[in-house]
Design a protein around this nucleic acid. Structure first.
Length: 478
RNA sequence: CGAGGUGUGGCGCAGUUGGUAGCGCGCUUGCUUUGGGAGCAAGAAGCCGCAGGUUCAAGUCCUGUCACCUCGACCA
Protein backbone atom coordinates (compact mmCIF):
# COMPACT_ATOMS: atom_id res chain seq x y z
CA UNK A 1 0.00 0.00 0.00
CA UNK A 2 2.61 2.47 1.07
CA UNK A 3 4.67 1.42 -1.92
CA UNK A 4 1.94 2.50 -4.30
CA UNK A 5 1.39 5.82 -2.67
CA UNK A 6 2.43 8.72 -4.83
CA UNK A 7 5.56 9.91 -3.09
CA UNK A 8 5.60 13.39 -4.44
CA UNK A 9 2.26 15.04 -4.29
CA UNK A 10 1.48 18.46 -5.50
CA UNK A 11 2.61 17.53 -8.99
CA UNK A 12 0.38 17.00 -11.99
CA UNK A 13 0.47 13.40 -13.21
CA UNK A 14 1.52 12.83 -16.78
CA UNK A 15 -1.67 10.94 -17.60
CA UNK A 16 -3.74 13.89 -16.44
CA UNK A 17 -1.99 16.66 -18.36
CA UNK A 18 1.31 15.86 -20.01
CA UNK A 19 2.20 19.44 -20.92
CA UNK A 20 1.67 20.63 -17.37
CA UNK A 21 3.51 17.61 -15.96
CA UNK A 22 6.46 18.59 -18.14
CA UNK A 23 6.68 22.20 -17.02
CA UNK A 24 6.11 21.18 -13.39
CA UNK A 25 9.04 18.77 -13.54
CA UNK A 26 11.30 21.30 -15.23
CA UNK A 27 10.52 23.85 -12.53
CA UNK A 28 10.44 21.57 -9.49
CA UNK A 29 13.58 19.68 -10.43
CA UNK A 30 15.18 23.13 -10.73
CA UNK A 31 16.40 22.67 -14.29
CA UNK A 32 15.05 26.04 -15.38
CA UNK A 33 12.86 28.93 -14.34
CA UNK A 34 10.82 31.37 -16.34
CA UNK A 35 12.56 34.71 -16.71
CA UNK A 36 11.28 38.24 -17.06
CA UNK A 37 12.09 38.03 -20.75
CA UNK A 38 9.31 36.60 -22.89
CA UNK A 39 10.11 33.18 -24.26
CA UNK A 40 13.51 33.04 -22.60
CA UNK A 41 14.39 30.89 -19.62
CA UNK A 42 16.87 30.96 -16.80
CA UNK A 43 18.81 27.71 -16.86
CA UNK A 44 19.39 27.04 -13.18
CA UNK A 45 22.54 25.44 -11.74
CA UNK A 46 21.17 21.90 -11.91
CA UNK A 47 20.13 22.35 -15.55
CA UNK A 48 23.42 24.02 -16.36
CA UNK A 49 25.38 21.17 -14.78
CA UNK A 50 23.44 18.74 -16.96
CA UNK A 51 24.15 20.81 -20.07
CA UNK A 52 27.85 20.94 -19.13
CA UNK A 53 27.98 17.15 -18.97
CA UNK A 54 26.21 16.90 -22.33
CA UNK A 55 28.69 19.45 -23.68
CA UNK A 56 31.70 17.54 -22.40
CA UNK A 57 30.56 14.19 -23.77
CA UNK A 58 29.69 15.59 -27.18
CA UNK A 59 32.70 17.85 -27.39
CA UNK A 60 34.98 14.89 -26.69
CA UNK A 61 33.38 13.02 -29.57
CA UNK A 62 33.79 16.00 -31.90
CA UNK A 63 37.46 16.35 -31.02
CA UNK A 64 37.97 12.62 -31.44
CA UNK A 65 36.61 12.91 -34.98
CA UNK A 66 39.02 15.74 -35.82
CA UNK A 67 36.94 18.85 -35.24
CA UNK A 68 38.11 22.18 -33.81
CA UNK A 69 36.08 24.71 -31.84
CA UNK A 70 35.79 28.33 -32.95
CA UNK A 71 33.68 31.33 -31.94
CA UNK A 72 31.80 33.40 -34.50
CA UNK A 73 30.14 36.80 -34.06
CA UNK A 74 26.71 37.14 -32.50
CA UNK A 75 25.55 39.53 -35.27
CA UNK A 76 24.97 38.98 -38.96
CA UNK A 77 24.71 41.99 -41.29
CA UNK A 78 21.54 41.86 -43.38
CA UNK A 79 23.46 41.68 -46.64
CA UNK A 80 25.36 38.62 -45.47
CA UNK A 81 22.21 36.81 -44.33
CA UNK A 82 20.65 37.40 -47.73
CA UNK A 83 23.36 35.82 -49.83
CA UNK A 84 21.79 32.39 -50.03
CA UNK A 85 18.19 32.62 -51.23
CA UNK A 86 16.51 29.53 -49.77
CA UNK A 87 18.25 30.14 -46.49
CA UNK A 88 17.04 33.70 -46.02
CA UNK A 89 13.49 32.81 -47.03
CA UNK A 90 13.50 30.00 -44.47
CA UNK A 91 14.65 32.17 -41.60
CA UNK A 92 13.24 35.62 -42.39
CA UNK A 93 10.07 35.28 -40.28
CA UNK A 94 11.99 34.49 -37.13
CA UNK A 95 15.04 36.71 -36.98
CA UNK A 96 15.54 39.47 -34.41
CA UNK A 97 16.99 42.71 -35.74
CA UNK A 98 19.29 45.28 -34.19
CA UNK A 99 18.57 48.66 -35.72
CA UNK A 100 20.32 51.12 -33.41
CA UNK A 101 23.74 51.49 -31.83
CA UNK A 102 23.13 53.72 -28.84
CA UNK A 103 20.90 56.47 -30.23
CA UNK A 104 22.28 56.23 -33.71
CA UNK A 105 20.40 54.39 -36.43
CA UNK A 106 22.56 51.79 -38.18
CA UNK A 107 23.31 52.07 -41.91
CA UNK A 108 22.63 48.37 -42.19
CA UNK A 109 20.52 46.28 -39.84
CA UNK A 110 22.22 43.46 -37.94
CA UNK A 111 20.37 40.29 -37.13
CA UNK A 112 21.10 38.22 -34.08
CA UNK A 113 22.24 34.88 -35.43
CA UNK A 114 19.45 32.32 -35.81
CA UNK A 115 22.17 29.94 -37.08
CA UNK A 116 25.64 30.69 -38.39
CA UNK A 117 25.99 29.19 -41.90
CA UNK A 118 26.47 32.64 -43.40
CA UNK A 119 29.14 33.65 -40.89
CA UNK A 120 31.09 30.45 -41.40
CA UNK A 121 30.82 30.77 -45.18
CA UNK A 122 31.99 34.36 -45.12
CA UNK A 123 35.02 33.30 -43.10
CA UNK A 124 35.69 30.20 -45.20
CA UNK A 125 35.77 32.35 -48.33
CA UNK A 126 38.75 34.16 -46.78
CA UNK A 127 40.76 31.19 -45.62
CA UNK A 128 40.20 28.49 -48.23
CA UNK A 129 42.51 28.75 -51.26
CA UNK A 130 43.80 25.30 -52.03
CA UNK A 131 42.83 21.68 -51.64
CA UNK A 132 45.55 21.69 -49.00
CA UNK A 133 43.30 23.91 -46.86
CA UNK A 134 40.64 21.21 -46.81
CA UNK A 135 38.85 19.78 -45.02
CA UNK A 136 37.90 22.50 -42.55
CA UNK A 137 36.20 20.85 -39.59
CA UNK A 138 34.84 23.59 -37.33
CA UNK A 139 32.32 23.61 -34.53
CA UNK A 140 31.04 26.26 -32.16
CA UNK A 141 29.14 26.20 -28.87
CA UNK A 142 26.87 29.22 -28.55
CA UNK A 143 23.33 30.41 -28.22
CA UNK A 144 21.12 31.56 -31.08
CA UNK A 145 17.86 33.48 -31.28
CA UNK A 146 14.69 32.68 -33.21
CA UNK A 147 11.59 34.79 -32.70
CA UNK A 148 9.22 31.98 -31.77
CA UNK A 149 5.56 32.64 -31.10
CA UNK A 150 4.86 29.72 -28.81
CA UNK A 151 7.59 28.76 -26.37
CA UNK A 152 8.21 26.03 -23.81
CA UNK A 153 11.26 25.57 -21.59
CA UNK A 154 14.01 23.68 -23.46
CA UNK A 155 11.67 22.45 -26.21
CA UNK A 156 11.24 25.79 -27.92
CA UNK A 157 12.64 29.00 -26.50
CA UNK A 158 13.52 32.23 -28.27
CA UNK A 159 17.13 31.96 -27.23
CA UNK A 160 18.54 28.46 -27.04
CA UNK A 161 21.90 26.82 -26.49
CA UNK A 162 23.49 24.49 -28.97
CA UNK A 163 26.53 23.49 -30.90
CA UNK A 164 26.73 23.94 -34.64
CA UNK A 165 29.32 22.13 -36.69
CA UNK A 166 30.21 23.56 -40.11
CA UNK A 167 32.60 21.70 -42.34
CA UNK A 168 34.07 22.16 -45.83
CA UNK A 169 35.32 19.31 -47.98
CA UNK A 170 37.18 18.76 -51.20
CA UNK A 171 34.63 16.34 -52.65
CA UNK A 172 30.92 15.72 -52.44
CA UNK A 173 31.54 12.18 -51.33
CA UNK A 174 33.68 13.30 -48.43
CA UNK A 175 31.02 15.78 -47.31
CA UNK A 176 28.30 13.14 -47.53
CA UNK A 177 30.46 10.82 -45.45
CA UNK A 178 30.90 13.58 -42.84
CA UNK A 179 27.13 14.13 -42.75
CA UNK A 180 26.52 10.46 -42.05
CA UNK A 181 29.41 10.19 -39.61
CA UNK A 182 28.07 12.99 -37.44
CA UNK A 183 24.59 11.50 -37.54
CA UNK A 184 26.14 8.33 -36.13
CA UNK A 185 27.91 10.37 -33.45
CA UNK A 186 24.60 11.89 -32.37
CA UNK A 187 22.81 8.55 -32.37
CA UNK A 188 25.58 6.89 -30.39
CA UNK A 189 25.58 9.76 -27.89
CA UNK A 190 21.80 9.69 -27.48
CA UNK A 191 21.74 5.96 -26.88
CA UNK A 192 24.96 5.40 -24.92
CA UNK A 193 24.97 8.55 -22.80
CA UNK A 194 21.34 9.58 -22.55
CA UNK A 195 19.71 6.14 -22.80
CA UNK A 196 17.38 7.52 -25.46
CA UNK A 197 16.74 5.12 -28.37
CA UNK A 198 16.59 6.99 -31.67
CA UNK A 199 15.62 6.35 -35.26
CA UNK A 200 18.19 7.53 -37.77
CA UNK A 201 16.87 8.69 -41.07
CA UNK A 202 16.56 11.25 -43.82
CA UNK A 203 14.09 14.11 -43.88
CA UNK A 204 11.81 14.53 -46.88
CA UNK A 205 12.24 17.63 -49.06
CA UNK A 206 9.28 19.22 -47.28
CA UNK A 207 10.99 18.87 -43.92
CA UNK A 208 14.60 19.59 -44.80
CA UNK A 209 16.66 22.59 -43.70
CA UNK A 210 16.45 25.86 -45.65
CA UNK A 211 19.31 25.76 -48.12
CA UNK A 212 20.32 22.12 -47.61
CA UNK A 213 20.55 19.48 -50.29
CA UNK A 214 19.61 16.81 -47.79
CA UNK A 215 18.85 16.73 -44.06
CA UNK A 216 19.23 13.81 -41.68
CA UNK A 217 17.76 13.41 -38.23
CA UNK A 218 17.61 11.30 -35.13
CA UNK A 219 14.01 11.01 -33.96
CA UNK A 220 13.10 10.02 -30.43
CA UNK A 221 9.70 9.13 -29.06
CA UNK A 222 8.52 10.95 -25.97
CA UNK A 223 6.34 9.46 -23.25
CA UNK A 224 3.18 10.82 -24.87
CA UNK A 225 4.00 9.24 -28.23
CA UNK A 226 5.06 12.46 -29.91
CA UNK A 227 8.31 12.69 -31.83
CA UNK A 228 11.19 14.96 -30.92
CA UNK A 229 13.89 15.67 -33.49
CA UNK A 230 16.91 15.34 -31.24
CA UNK A 231 19.81 16.07 -33.51
CA UNK A 232 20.24 16.88 -37.16
CA UNK A 233 22.90 16.87 -39.86
CA UNK A 234 22.82 18.52 -43.27
CA UNK A 235 24.60 18.01 -46.54
CA UNK A 236 24.73 21.31 -48.41
CA UNK A 237 26.41 20.35 -51.64
CA UNK A 238 28.12 23.44 -53.05
CA UNK A 239 25.11 25.80 -52.89
CA UNK A 240 26.49 28.04 -50.17
CA UNK A 241 29.98 27.84 -51.67
CA UNK A 242 28.64 29.31 -54.88
CA UNK A 243 26.56 31.94 -53.11
CA UNK A 244 29.54 33.00 -50.99
CA UNK A 245 32.12 32.51 -53.71
CA UNK A 246 34.22 30.02 -51.79
CA UNK A 247 36.70 28.46 -54.23
CA UNK A 248 39.87 26.45 -54.05
CA UNK A 249 42.45 25.27 -56.53
CA UNK A 250 42.19 21.51 -56.85
CA UNK A 251 44.81 18.85 -57.31
CA UNK A 252 44.29 19.18 -61.07
CA UNK A 253 44.92 22.94 -60.95
CA UNK A 254 41.29 23.86 -61.67
CA UNK A 255 39.11 26.18 -59.56
CA UNK A 256 36.47 24.23 -57.63
CA UNK A 257 33.73 24.80 -55.10
CA UNK A 258 34.07 22.90 -51.82
CA UNK A 259 31.24 20.76 -50.46
CA UNK A 260 29.74 21.62 -47.12
CA UNK A 261 27.97 20.13 -44.12
CA UNK A 262 26.44 21.41 -40.92
CA UNK A 263 25.05 19.64 -37.87
CA UNK A 264 23.59 20.58 -34.53
CA UNK A 265 22.25 19.38 -31.24
CA UNK A 266 20.60 21.82 -28.87
CA UNK A 267 19.48 22.27 -25.28
CA UNK A 268 16.22 20.82 -26.55
CA UNK A 269 17.81 17.46 -25.81
CA UNK A 270 17.22 18.25 -22.13
CA UNK A 271 13.50 18.28 -22.90
CA UNK A 272 13.97 14.88 -24.52
CA UNK A 273 15.61 13.53 -21.37
CA UNK A 274 12.72 14.78 -19.23
CA UNK A 275 10.01 13.44 -21.53
CA UNK A 276 11.70 10.09 -22.23
CA UNK A 277 12.67 8.98 -18.74
CA UNK A 278 10.57 11.07 -16.34
CA UNK A 279 7.73 9.62 -14.28
CA UNK A 280 5.12 10.82 -11.83
CA UNK A 281 7.73 11.29 -9.12
CA UNK A 282 9.70 13.65 -11.31
CA UNK A 283 12.81 13.55 -13.39
CA UNK A 284 14.96 10.49 -13.97
CA UNK A 285 18.51 11.40 -14.97
CA UNK A 286 20.42 9.05 -17.25
CA UNK A 287 23.46 8.19 -15.08
CA UNK A 288 26.18 9.04 -17.60
CA UNK A 289 25.24 12.73 -17.74
CA UNK A 290 23.57 13.09 -14.34
CA UNK A 291 25.00 16.09 -12.45
CA UNK A 292 24.73 13.98 -9.29
CA UNK A 293 25.01 10.22 -9.74
CA UNK A 294 24.77 9.26 -6.08
CA UNK A 295 23.25 11.27 -3.26
CA UNK A 296 24.45 10.33 0.20
CA UNK A 297 21.81 10.76 2.91
CA UNK A 298 22.77 10.41 6.56
CA UNK A 299 19.87 8.97 8.55
CA UNK A 300 19.40 10.06 12.15
CA UNK A 301 22.21 12.51 11.61
CA UNK A 302 22.28 13.69 15.21
CA UNK A 303 23.36 10.23 16.42
CA UNK A 304 26.98 9.77 17.30
CA UNK A 305 29.20 9.12 14.29
CA UNK A 306 26.57 9.12 11.52
CA UNK A 307 27.48 12.43 9.93
CA UNK A 308 31.21 11.65 10.09
CA UNK A 309 30.61 8.29 8.43
CA UNK A 310 28.48 9.90 5.70
CA UNK A 311 31.15 12.52 5.06
CA UNK A 312 33.83 9.88 4.79
CA UNK A 313 31.70 7.86 2.37
CA UNK A 314 31.00 10.90 0.18
CA UNK A 315 34.70 11.65 0.08
CA UNK A 316 35.46 8.05 -0.89
CA UNK A 317 32.75 7.95 -3.58
CA UNK A 318 33.92 11.23 -5.11
CA UNK A 319 36.97 9.38 -6.40
CA UNK A 320 34.90 7.37 -8.87
CA UNK A 321 31.52 9.06 -9.33
CA UNK A 322 29.70 12.38 -9.02
CA UNK A 323 28.41 12.44 -5.48
CA UNK A 324 26.54 14.87 -3.26
CA UNK A 325 26.15 14.69 0.48
CA UNK A 326 23.00 16.29 1.84
CA UNK A 327 23.66 17.05 5.48
CA UNK A 328 21.01 19.77 5.68
CA UNK A 329 18.55 19.53 8.55
CA UNK A 330 15.60 18.68 6.33
CA UNK A 331 13.90 15.43 7.29
CA UNK A 332 14.98 12.18 5.67
CA UNK A 333 11.59 11.84 4.00
CA UNK A 334 11.87 15.28 2.52
CA UNK A 335 15.26 14.43 1.07
CA UNK A 336 14.01 11.19 -0.46
CA UNK A 337 11.29 13.05 -2.30
CA UNK A 338 13.55 15.92 -3.28
CA UNK A 339 16.21 13.77 -4.96
CA UNK A 340 13.59 11.66 -6.65
CA UNK A 341 12.14 14.83 -8.14
CA UNK A 342 15.63 15.73 -9.31
CA UNK A 343 16.10 12.25 -10.72
CA UNK A 344 19.37 11.32 -9.01
CA UNK A 345 20.01 7.75 -10.24
CA UNK A 346 21.18 6.26 -6.94
CA UNK A 347 20.47 7.13 -3.33
CA UNK A 348 22.78 5.92 -0.58
CA UNK A 349 21.32 5.82 2.92
CA UNK A 350 23.61 5.42 5.90
CA UNK A 351 22.23 5.26 9.43
CA UNK A 352 23.19 3.89 12.85
CA UNK A 353 21.92 0.38 12.08
CA UNK A 354 23.91 0.29 8.85
CA UNK A 355 27.09 1.43 10.53
CA UNK A 356 26.73 -1.39 13.05
CA UNK A 357 26.44 -3.88 10.20
CA UNK A 358 29.12 -2.27 8.00
CA UNK A 359 26.59 -1.73 5.21
CA UNK A 360 24.47 0.89 3.53
CA UNK A 361 21.20 1.01 1.58
CA UNK A 362 21.31 1.74 -2.15
CA UNK A 363 18.08 2.64 -3.93
CA UNK A 364 17.70 2.90 -7.71
CA UNK A 365 15.67 5.84 -8.99
CA UNK A 366 14.37 4.08 -12.08
CA UNK A 367 12.62 1.18 -10.34
CA UNK A 368 13.04 1.97 -6.62
CA UNK A 369 14.84 -1.34 -6.09
CA UNK A 370 16.52 -1.32 -2.71
CA UNK A 371 19.64 -3.29 -1.82
CA UNK A 372 21.82 -3.62 1.25
CA UNK A 373 25.44 -3.38 0.25
CA UNK A 374 28.55 -3.98 2.29
CA UNK A 375 30.64 -0.87 2.70
CA UNK A 376 33.61 -2.87 1.41
CA UNK A 377 32.04 -3.35 -2.04
CA UNK A 378 31.01 0.18 -3.00
CA UNK A 379 33.77 0.65 -5.58
CA UNK A 380 32.40 -2.22 -7.64
CA UNK A 381 28.73 -2.14 -6.70
CA UNK A 382 27.98 1.52 -7.44
CA UNK A 383 29.36 1.55 -11.01
CA UNK A 384 27.47 -1.69 -11.63
CA UNK A 385 24.22 -0.18 -10.42
CA UNK A 386 24.73 3.01 -12.43
CA UNK A 387 25.18 0.88 -15.54
CA UNK A 388 22.11 -1.11 -14.63
CA UNK A 389 20.06 2.08 -14.33
CA UNK A 390 21.31 3.22 -17.72
CA UNK A 391 20.42 -0.11 -19.27
CA UNK A 392 17.05 -0.19 -17.54
CA UNK A 393 16.15 3.27 -18.82
CA UNK A 394 17.19 2.45 -22.37
CA UNK A 395 15.26 -0.80 -22.47
CA UNK A 396 12.14 0.73 -20.97
CA UNK A 397 12.18 3.55 -23.52
CA UNK A 398 12.81 1.15 -26.39
CA UNK A 399 10.01 -1.17 -25.30
CA UNK A 400 7.62 1.75 -25.07
CA UNK A 401 8.58 2.96 -28.53
CA UNK A 402 8.05 -0.45 -30.05
CA UNK A 403 4.74 -0.83 -28.31
CA UNK A 404 3.61 2.54 -29.63
CA UNK A 405 4.72 2.04 -33.24
CA UNK A 406 2.10 0.94 -35.74
CA UNK A 407 1.99 0.03 -39.42
CA UNK A 408 -0.76 1.10 -41.80
CA UNK A 409 -1.33 0.56 -45.51
CA UNK A 410 -4.18 2.88 -46.46
CA UNK A 411 -5.36 6.40 -45.89
CA UNK A 412 -8.35 5.61 -43.69
CA UNK A 413 -6.26 3.44 -41.38
CA UNK A 414 -3.68 6.20 -41.17
CA UNK A 415 -6.30 8.77 -40.24
CA UNK A 416 -7.91 6.47 -37.71
CA UNK A 417 -4.60 5.50 -36.13
CA UNK A 418 -3.36 9.08 -35.91
CA UNK A 419 -6.58 10.13 -34.26
CA UNK A 420 -6.81 7.47 -31.56
CA UNK A 421 -3.33 6.06 -30.90
CA UNK A 422 -0.42 8.33 -30.03
CA UNK A 423 2.91 7.11 -31.39
CA UNK A 424 4.83 6.48 -34.59
CA UNK A 425 3.21 5.13 -37.70
CA UNK A 426 5.12 3.26 -40.38
CA UNK A 427 3.71 3.56 -43.88
CA UNK A 428 4.81 3.55 -47.51
CA UNK A 429 5.15 6.76 -49.47
CA UNK A 430 5.32 7.46 -53.21
CA UNK A 431 7.65 10.44 -52.87
CA UNK A 432 5.14 13.14 -53.67
CA UNK A 433 5.07 16.29 -51.48
CA UNK A 434 1.35 16.56 -52.25
CA UNK A 435 0.71 13.32 -50.39
CA UNK A 436 2.69 14.61 -47.43
CA UNK A 437 0.62 17.79 -47.40
CA UNK A 438 -2.60 15.84 -47.56
CA UNK A 439 -1.59 13.60 -44.66
CA UNK A 440 -0.67 16.67 -42.65
CA UNK A 441 -3.94 18.47 -43.36
CA UNK A 442 -6.32 15.55 -43.11
CA UNK A 443 -4.66 13.05 -40.79
CA UNK A 444 -2.66 15.51 -38.71
CA UNK A 445 0.67 13.72 -39.09
CA UNK A 446 3.95 14.85 -40.59
CA UNK A 447 6.71 12.69 -41.95
CA UNK A 448 9.37 12.20 -39.31
CA UNK A 449 12.00 10.53 -41.46
CA UNK A 450 12.88 7.98 -44.09
CA UNK A 451 14.64 5.50 -41.81
CA UNK A 452 17.95 3.88 -42.66
CA UNK A 453 16.41 0.53 -41.86
CA UNK A 454 13.67 0.07 -44.42
CA UNK A 455 10.79 -2.40 -44.30
CA UNK A 456 8.30 -3.25 -46.99
CA UNK A 457 4.91 -2.58 -45.39
CA UNK A 458 3.01 -2.75 -48.70
CA UNK A 459 3.36 -2.07 -52.44
CA UNK A 460 1.61 1.27 -52.60
CA UNK A 461 1.57 4.79 -51.16
CA UNK A 462 -0.53 5.10 -48.02
CA UNK A 463 -2.05 8.29 -49.40
CA UNK A 464 -2.52 8.07 -53.17
CA UNK A 465 -2.20 4.32 -53.76
CA UNK A 466 0.43 4.67 -56.46
CA UNK A 467 3.42 2.32 -56.38
CA UNK A 468 5.77 3.18 -53.51
CA UNK A 469 9.15 1.88 -52.46
CA UNK A 470 9.96 4.12 -49.46
CA UNK A 471 8.84 3.44 -45.92
CA UNK A 472 8.52 6.48 -43.68
CA UNK A 473 7.87 7.09 -40.03
CA UNK A 474 4.94 9.43 -39.50
CA UNK A 475 3.71 11.10 -36.36
CA UNK A 476 2.99 14.20 -34.40
CA UNK A 477 6.04 16.19 -33.46
CA UNK A 478 7.23 18.73 -30.92
C1' C B 1 -1.23 35.79 -36.02
C1' G B 2 -6.21 33.29 -34.12
C1' A B 3 -8.84 31.26 -29.75
C1' G B 4 -8.91 30.75 -24.57
C1' G B 5 -6.96 31.74 -19.65
C1' U B 6 -4.38 34.21 -15.59
C1' G B 7 -2.33 38.61 -13.01
C1' U B 8 -3.77 39.41 -4.88
C1' G B 9 2.97 38.18 0.52
C1' G B 10 8.53 34.01 -2.30
C1' C B 11 5.03 29.88 -4.50
C1' G B 12 -0.11 28.02 -5.05
C1' C B 13 -4.76 30.07 -4.33
C1' A B 14 -9.65 32.24 -1.82
C1' G B 15 -11.93 36.85 -1.57
C1' U B 16 -20.03 36.51 -1.84
C1' U B 17 -24.85 41.95 -3.21
C1' G B 18 -18.53 47.21 -3.49
C1' G B 19 -17.58 48.21 3.32
C1' U B 20 -10.78 48.63 6.59
C1' A B 21 -6.95 41.74 2.66
C1' G B 22 -7.22 36.02 4.07
C1' C B 23 -5.73 30.57 3.69
C1' G B 24 -2.09 26.62 2.58
C1' C B 25 2.95 25.85 1.55
C1' G B 26 7.55 28.21 2.03
C1' C B 27 10.72 31.71 5.04
C1' U B 28 12.94 33.40 10.23
C1' U B 29 13.75 32.09 15.61
C1' G B 30 13.40 28.49 19.63
C1' C B 31 12.51 23.59 21.56
C1' U B 32 11.34 18.57 20.37
C1' U B 33 12.16 15.36 16.08
C1' U B 34 14.95 12.51 11.99
C1' G B 35 14.77 4.83 7.99
C1' G B 36 9.22 8.20 2.86
C1' G B 37 7.95 15.56 2.01
C1' A B 38 8.01 16.00 11.02
C1' G B 39 5.38 18.58 15.56
C1' C B 40 4.50 22.73 18.73
C1' A B 41 5.17 27.92 19.73
C1' A B 42 6.39 32.78 18.32
C1' G B 43 7.47 36.04 14.14
C1' A B 44 8.48 38.63 9.22
C1' A B 45 6.47 39.45 4.73
C1' G B 46 1.03 42.53 0.21
C1' C B 47 0.72 50.20 -3.92
C1' C B 48 -4.44 43.33 -5.18
C1' G B 49 -0.08 43.93 -12.95
C1' C B 50 -0.39 49.29 -14.64
C1' A B 51 -3.34 53.87 -15.97
C1' G B 52 -7.80 56.31 -15.97
C1' G B 53 -13.06 56.49 -14.47
C1' U B 54 -17.81 55.63 -11.41
C1' U B 55 -18.66 55.93 -5.93
C1' C B 56 -18.92 58.45 0.66
C1' A B 57 -16.09 53.88 -0.27
C1' A B 58 -13.03 49.64 -5.55
C1' G B 59 -9.13 43.51 -5.10
C1' U B 60 -14.45 43.57 -6.46
C1' C B 61 -18.01 47.76 -11.24
C1' C B 62 -16.57 50.43 -16.20
C1' U B 63 -12.74 51.83 -20.01
C1' G B 64 -8.02 51.31 -21.64
C1' U B 65 -3.31 49.10 -21.40
C1' C B 66 0.79 45.75 -20.31
C1' A B 67 2.70 41.08 -19.13
C1' C B 68 2.71 35.98 -18.85
C1' C B 69 0.58 30.98 -19.67
C1' U B 70 -2.13 27.16 -22.64
C1' C B 71 -3.99 25.37 -27.32
C1' G B 72 -3.88 26.13 -32.58
C1' A B 73 -1.44 28.22 -37.14
C1' C B 74 3.63 28.87 -38.28
C1' C B 75 8.20 26.87 -37.04
C1' A B 76 15.42 24.32 -40.67
Amino acid sequence: MAEQKKMVDNNTSMEEDFAKWYTDVVKKAELAAYSGVRGCMVVRPYGTALWENIHDELDGRFKATGHENVMMPLFIPESLLQKEKDHVVGFAPEVAWVTHGGDEKLQERLCIRPTSETLFCDHYSEIIQSYRDLPKLYNQWCSVVRWEKTTRPFLRTMEFFWQEGHTMHETAQEAVEETMKMLDVYAEFAEDCLAIPVIKGKKTDNEKFAGAESTYTIEAMMHDGKALQSGTTHYFGDGFSKAFNIQFTGRDNTLQYPHQTSWGMSSRIIGAIVMTHGDNNGLVMPPRVAPVQVVVLPIAMHKEGVLEKAQALAERLSKFCRVKLDDSDNSAGWKFAEYEMKGVPLRLEIGPKDIENNQCVLVRRDNREKSFVSLDELETKIPELLDAVHQGLYEKALARREEMTYSVTNFEAMKENAAVRPGFIKAMWCGSPACEDKLKDEAGVTSRCIPEEQEKISESCVCCGKPATLMLYWGKAY
